[in-house]
Simulated assay, not measured.
Amino acid sequence: MLPLSIATVAVLVLMSAVAARRIAPGAERLTMQWKWNGTPNWSLPRNAALAVTPALAAVVFTVVALRGETAAVLPACIAFIGAHALHLFLLAKRGG
């Protein structure tokens, strides 16, 4: 399951790289969470915002690999890619 984990982190990094060029190119900060009414709740500097999910995935997959819990890898891969895609979609839709 290690190759799947590595591939997932690579996909997340690629998604972030593409988003860095396309989503709100002039924005210094990107929203990380929105309130129910659609206003930003908090934000991070651009590079940090795009690096959070790939970095978190790398940490989670490292812990999973060290603990030998391979059954958790596939659902985690799907969840990370889905969550990152949703975040990037919302950033694109709401302008960062």
Rank of each mutant, 00 (worst) to 15 (best):
M1P: 07
L2Y: 04
L2P: 05
P3I: 14
P3H: 15
L4E: 00
L4F: 12
S5T: 09
S5E: 03
A7N: 06
T8E: 03
T8Y: 07
V9N: 06
V9H: 08
A10C: 12
V11Q: 02
V11A: 13
L12C: 00
V13H: 04
V13L: 10
L14E: 00
L14S: 05
M15Q: 05
M15K: 00
M15L: 06
S16I: 00
S16P: 00
A17L: 06
V18Y: 03
V18M: 01
R21L: 12
R21H: 10
R22E: 07
I23R: 01
I23Y: 02
A24M: 03
A27H: 09
A27K: 12
E28T: 08
R29I: 06
R29H: 06
R29D: 03
L30C: 08
T31H: 02
M32V: 07
Q33V: 09
K35T: 10
K35L: 12
G38M: 14
T39C: 12
P40D: 15
W42E: 08
S43W: 14
R46T: 01
R46G: 07
N47F: 12
A48Y: 09
A48W: 10
A48G: 04
A49R: 05
A49T: 00
A49P: 00
A51M: 10
A51L: 11
V52K: 01
T53Q: 09
A55K: 02
L56C: 14
L56E: 11
L56S: 14
L56R: 12
A57T: 04
A58M: 08
T62E: 05
V63L: 06
V64C: 14
V64Q: 12
R67E: 13
R67P: 05
R67S: 15
E69F: 15
T70K: 11
L74A: 14
L74S: 07
I78C: 10
A79V: 05
I81Y: 04
A83K: 04
H87I: 00
L88V: 03
F89K: 08
L91T: 02
L91D: 02
L91F: 03
A92E: 01
K93H: 11
K93R: 14
G95Y: 13
G96V: 04
